[in-house]
Design a protein around this nucleic acid. Structure first.
Lengths: 250, 250
DNA sequence: TCAAAAGTGTTAAACTTACACCCATGG
DNA sequence: CCATGGGTGTAAGTTTAACACTTTTGA
C-alpha cells in the first residue's frame, strides 16, 4: 500500500510538497503604548504570484525532518532562529496553486525581540503587522489568520508567551505579550497571581534596573517539558508522552 | 522509481506522500459495565511490514483534497463513513519507512456505533482496543498514542463526544463517552448540569423507552459550527472563522 | 414494593474579577 | 515629594465538586 510505485504511474505529476512557516514576533508601538504582533514576509521572485509577499518556505529536502526543513528555510530567507517552532497544519486544497498540485506543511514560530532585530530586512524581506496582513500570495492570508487563532488558543491555555521574550522578563512584559495576542487588557494584579501559580515561571533574585519607576523583579521560564507537541516521527528518538501506552496486541 | 533503497537516489526523489486515518469508535464492555475505545486496523498485504496491522490509508490522489483522500481510503478499506474527520498531524521523520522517504498526513475520525457495526470485518480488517494497540507497522503505535491524547484534549475542552453517538442520545450515554475517553468516573449530577449549560446540546421532547428503569430524556447536538477546525485550503470556498481579519497590506 | 437509574437540591471549597491600597524609584 | 508603575489585600461573584435526596420506571 505504502511502497507502491504506481503513485507516480497513476498521474503524471505527484503533488509537490513544500514547507512554510508563519513567524511571529512582538514589536512595541511606543505611540499607542502597547505591544503588537508582527511577522516577516518574503517577496516572491518568480512566478506564480511574482512580486507578492508570501510566507518563507520552500521544498522539503530529502534528508531532513519536516521541522528541520522549516528551520532551515527560516535561516536561509530571514536569518531567524526561533525559540519556538511547532507544526501548524498541512494545507492541501486543490486550488492552492494554479500550475500544480501543492501540499504545504506549515509551521509556526515565535522569535524574541533581539532575534527579530537581527533579521535581515531587505528589498525582499519585510515585517508586517499581523493585523494588517492581506493580499499575500497563494492562500497565505488564510494561513496567517489560522495561525493567529492557534496562537491565541495556545496562549490562553498554556505556556507559549515566554518565547516572545528574552531569557529573563518582568511580569509586565509578559502581560504585554498576553494583551497583544489576546487583544484585550488584563488586570495586572490578577495576572500576577495567576502566573505565580503557574509553576513553570519562577522568580529570579534579580530586578530590572534603569526604569523610571520601581524596579520590577525578573522572572524566567523553567521549560522542562519540550514545547513541541509530543509527536513521534518528528524527531528520531522522541517518544510520545501524552498518553498511557499500549501493552500487547490482541 | 519510488522504492529505491539507494541513499543518493533517495535524496534525489521527492518524498512520497500518504494519507492515513486513526478511526475511533465506542464499544460497550458489558462485563465491566463501561464503554471502551476501539479502532479498526488493516493488515498489510505487502512489504514492508507485511502481515502487520496498520492504520488504513494510502497515497494521495491528485484530484482530491487531503480530507477527501482520507475519507475515500476509509470507505475503500473499512466501509466506514465517519461523522467526524479532522487532521491530526503530518509525520515526516526520516526513518519512518526503510525503503523510501515517507511523509504521512494523518487524520482522525469518530464513528457511531451503528456505523461501526457495518464496518467490514474480515481477515484483513480487525477491531482493537485502543489501550491494547501495540506492535503496529511503521510508527503507527506512536501515531495512535498521539491521537488518543488529542481526543482527550478535544473532549475536555469542546464538543466532540457527540460524534461517538447517534442522532439522539441520553446524558448517561454521553457521560459514558466522556468516561471512556478521559478514563475516569464523572459525577452524574454535575455532568448533567455542565452539559445543560453547554448550549449546543438541546433536550428533545422524547424519552428512551424500554429500559429497566426510569426512561431518560433524549438529547441531540445542534452542531451549528463546522467541527473541522477553521482551515483554509482544506475545502475550496471555506473561509477561516477563528480570527479577525486583515484589512490592507502595509 | 423494591432495585436501579433519572434527575434535583444543597453546601463548602476553589477560582475569578474588580478595585482599593501601599511600596519603591527617578526625577 | 510626587507621578508612575510594581506589588499586596480583600471581598463579591461565579464555578467546581461532593453527596444527600426525591422521582420514575420494570419486574
Amino acid at each position: 500500500m505504502y511502497g507502491s510505485a504506481n503513485v507516480s504511474e497513476r498521474q503524471a505529476q505527484p503533488p509537490a510538497l513544500a514547507i512554510s512557516t508563519v513567524i511571529f514576533a512582538l514589536r512595541r508601538d511606543e505611540a499607542a503604548g502597547r505591544d503588537e504582533i508582527w511577522l516577516p514576509l518574503v517577496r516572491r521572485i518568480r512566478q506564480p504570484h511574482l512580486g507578492k509577499w508570501a510566507l518563507p518556505g520552500g521544498p522539503l529536502d530529502g534528508r531532513e525532518s519536516l521541522q528541520d526543513a522549516a528551520a532551515r528555510h527560516l535561516r536561509d530567507t530571514t536569518d531567524l532562529e526561533p525559540t519556538y517552532l511547532e507544526q501548524l497544519y498541512a494545507f492541501g486544497g486543490l486550488d492552492r496553486a494554479a500550475t500544480q498540485r501543492l501540499v504545504s506543511i506549515v509551521y509556526w514560530a515565535l522569535v524574541r525581540p533581539d532575534q527579530a532585530d537581527l533579521a535581515r530586512a531587505s528589498e525582499n524581506v519585510r515585517w508586517f503587522r499581523a493585523s494588517e496582513v492581506d493580499g499575500l500570495a497563494f492562500d497565505h492570508d488564510d494561513i496567517v489568520a489560522y495561525a493567529l487563532g492557534r496562537l491565541r488558543g495556545k496562549v490562553e491555555y498554556g505556556a507559549v508567551a515566554y518565547h516572545f521574550l528574552g531569557e529573563r522578563f518582568t511580569l509586565t512584559q509578559l502581560r504585554g505579550v498576553y494583551e497583544a495576542v489576546l487583544d484585550r487588557q488584563l488586570d495586572p494584579a490578577n495576572f500576577r497571581r495567576q502566573l505565580r501559580s503557574a509553576k513553570d515561571i519562577v522568580p529570579t533574585d534579580e530586578v530590572l534596573q534603569g526604569g523610571r519607576n520601581r524596579p520590577p523583579r525578573l522572572y524566567r521560564y523553567s521549560g522542562d517539558r519540550p514545547e513541541t507537541p509530543p509527536v513521534a516521527g518528528n524527531r528520531p528518538g522522541t517518544t510520545s508522552t501524552s498518553t498511557p501506552h499500549a501493552s500487547r496486541a490482541r
